[in-house]
């Protein structure tokens, strides 16, 4: 559905996107992830024909953004970073205008406007002036605007920015709902959002592609080992930290034990295990068997956050090495 090959975008001095290639299949939800200034918005602007690429090609639904922009635009719904709203219009008026602009037939407009205002939960502010809306409602109107013509491809630049927690969940549900029939690219800084909504992640950093994979693969790839948090309390008011550490280390499959925190007669350890071992049962038995209290035993999920930091950090290290 979306195919980007060797795409580069240069602004006057900066190279915002540097030779990026990726492909998105029909019906997928793809998360676009990257630190500030990574080039997410720029990539989206190229895909929506707002900016022409400086090099390489980008195709949406088989149409090149440079050669057949009108065909591409017909198939895209776009929510820019700041929702493109006209303050002097009422919400309904605005949605009607956008609907017409996107080529919806006059007879269908009213129905579509009603549908999207229902879906994006803005029905109660229908007749309000856009300038009088709160930030979250503006964001929702922006989202309604993007889906009004039922486009094949949805490009959402930070769709949940400024929403309240309930609305964030609803928006995520809405996005997931739309996924089957639409191809969706969304950018975000909230990593858990990608974990919750997306099937595929594209991580970019400083304009370069850092990783592209499915969420589950990416998580598995970096989870060479499992980490477990273990909190132990001494029963008679004292706890010999070194002794606990020693015993935990001797459990089969444990590769490292680090003491994270120790207070009075308590101590929190982070235990790393080798791949293929299930050490939690043995850890519990060891602690209890030695007469200590086991306060907590919890696997530390290796989140996308870690992956993200790791990928973007290693990129930085690489560039440092390259400079030397």
């Amino acid at each position: 559905m979306i195919k980007v090959e060797g795409m580069t975008k240069r602004y006057a001095r900066t190279v915002a996107v540097d030779n990026i290639s990726f492909e998105v299949e029909k019906g997928r939800i793809v998360g676009f992830l990257g630190p500030n200034g990574a080039g997410k918005t720029t990539t989206m602007r190229v895909l929506t024909c707002f900016l022409p690429p400086s090099g390489g090609t980008a195709k949406v639904a088989g149409f090149d953004v440079l050669e057949q922009p009108l065909e591409v635009k017909k198939r895209i719904g776009y929510l820019p970073e700041t929702p493109p709203l006209y303050p002097e219009m009422e919400v309904v008026e605005y949605l009607t205008f956008v609907g017409k602009l996107k080529g919806i037939a006059g007879s269908d407009i009213k129905r579509r406007v009603d549908e999207v205002s229902e879906r994006c939960a803005i029905a109660d502010v229908r007749n309000r002036l856009v300038s009088k809306l709160s930030k979250g409602y503006r964001q929702r109107v922006g989202l309604a605007q993007a889906i009004i013509h039922n486009p094949d491809v949805l490009i959402l630049d930070e769709p949940t920015a400024g929403l309240d927690p309930k609305q964030i969940i609803e928006t995520r549900e809405l996005i997931k709902d739309l996924a089957g029939s639409h191809t969706i690219i969304l950018s975000t800084h909230i990593l858990s959002e990608v974990e919750h909504t997306c099937e595929q992640v594209i991580i970019i950093n400083k304009g370069r592609l850092a990783a592209i994979d499915s969420v589950s693969n990416l998580t598995a790839r970096l989870r060479g080992s499992e980490s477990i948090a273990v909190e132990v309390e001494g029963t008679d008011g004292v706890l010999n930290r070194a002794e606990v550490q020693g015993r935990l280390e001797r459990v089969a499959g444990v590769s490292a034990v680090i003491c994270k925190e120790s207070r009075d007669n308590r101590c929190l350890f982070e235990v790393e295990s080798l791949q293929g071992y299930h050490v939690r049962g043995d850890l519990a038995r060891t602690v209890v068997g030695a007469g200590w209290n086991l306060l907590e035993l919890r696997p530390i999920a290796l989140s996308l956050e870690n992956i993200f930091l790791e990928l973007t950090a290693s990129e930085q290290q690489q560039t440092v090495v390259a400079k030397q």
Binding site: R45, K73, P80, E81, L85, V98
Partner: peptide, 14 residues
């Protein structure tokens, strides 16, 4: 200034 130009330029109009 307000960014609505992004709407106009990404809509299927010449």
């Amino acid at each position: 200034r307000s960014g609505t130009i992004e709407l106009l330029l990404t809509s299927p109009v010449r």
